[in-house]
């Protein structure tokens, strides 16, 4: 198992390297921070700009390949992911950003999963009944609603509640109120900030799991081994619960791991709408600020998350399916 993990990780490392490198070239050839510097007042001379960028390791006069070598050298020798045009170090901000994103997503990832799988099972058990139709139609509806718009609608709703109550209960943007005193008030503040994004991401997130779990379970409801279980004397519901359900988890377990990167992208929209300064938002800001190094770093982060997801998927499969257990 360990050997296998090592091998897979090796392959993914190569892939991460390639995608990140490709991303770097894309960024370095299309992002030109100098253009923004020109708009500063007082307007610096091109020589000044070039000089200041050279100091930051962003020399615009070097060709992309030279800059790539310089950039890669920094990472390999000093684990230094470079600097922004304004002089900030990428490494310094990275950890904070990752923390913010993780904090934002973790609750909704878990909620989405639990609710989605539970609803999938519930609706499969009531196939073609009203409950199933309502739940499944909702999931299909979510599929044709773009995430940012969905989040925006939730925001509108939260504002509506605030107005109806006449008092600000929910924050619809931001991460915390600055200068709040620690203890109970800080906790209330935290919840008030968390509630809306978590709610939004959860109710628009579970659709995929619900549909998948429902489908896999239905695929197994009439399987031969369920019939065997019933022939033993289990009722239909017992047979489904004990046999079909367990088998239907196998593909779901796989897909769960694969959706983690999808949450990263989806989360990007959430960060943008709810104004949480996470990785996703950072990457977008980096682009509007023509910041090559930050853009590439966030891209690398995305690839790493993907690789972890894929390896987790393998791992999950071996856990739930005895047929692929490695001795």
């Amino acid at each position: 198992m360990l050997k296998y993990l090592m091998k897979r990780s090796g392959i993914y490392l190569i892939m991460i390297f390639l995608t990140t490198s490709a991303g770097y070239f894309l960024a370095v050839s299309s992002l030109k921070p100098a253009v923004l510097e020109q708009e500063k007042i007082p307007r610096p001379t091109p020589e000044q700009v070039a000089a200041s960028f050279r100091g930051l390791g962003l020399d615009p006069e070097l060709n992309p390949w030279e800059r790539y070598v310089q950039w890669l050298g920094g990472i390999v020798t000093r684990w230094d992911w470079g600097r922004s045009p304004n002089g900030a170090f990428v490494n310094a901000e990275f950890a904070d950003r990752v923390m913010v994103s993780t904090r934002l997503f973790i609750a909704s990832i878990i909620l989405t999963l639990v609710i989605g799988v539970a609803l999938g099972v519930y609706s499969a058990a009531r196939q073609y009944k009203v409950q199933d139709r309502v739940i499944t139609s909702y999931s299909y509806l979510v599929h044709i609603l773009p995430a940012p718009i969905a989040y925006f609608l939730v925001q509108l709703g939260a504002i509506g509640i605030n107005e109806a109550v006449g008092q600000r209960i929910f924050f619809v943007t931001g991460i915390s109120t600055p200068g709040i005193e620690p203890g109970w008030p800080a906790f209330v503040d935290l919840v008030a900030h968390y509630a809306v994004p978590t709610f939004a991401m959860t109710i628009f997130g579970w659709a995929g799991y619900q549909i998948a779990q429902r489908q896999y379970l239905l695929d197994n409801v009439n399987a031969d081994f369920v019939r065997t279980a019933r022939a033993k004397g289990l009722t239909r519901n017992q047979a489904i619960r004990k046999h079909a359900l367990r088998v239907s988890f196998i593909p779901v377990a796989q897909s769960i791991a694969f959706t983690i990167p999808a949450i990263f992208t989806g989360g990007f929209f959430a960060e943008a709408i709810f104004a949480w300064p996470g990785i996703g938002l950072w990457s977008i800001q980096a682009i509007s600020l023509q910041d090559v190094n930050v853009a590439t770093a966030t891209l690398a982060y995305g690839s790493v998350i993907f690789a972890i997801g894929a390896i987790l998927a393998d791992f999950a499969t071996t856990l739930v399916d005895p047929r692929v257990r490695v001795q």
């Binding site: 081994f225 022939a231 088998v247 047929r323």
Partner: peptide
């Protein structure tokens, strides 16, 4: 039943 390959639950 006829098909022994699919008549037992694979995970137990």
């Amino acid at each position: 039943f006829q098909d022994p390959l699919s008549s037992l639950t694979p995970v137990y």
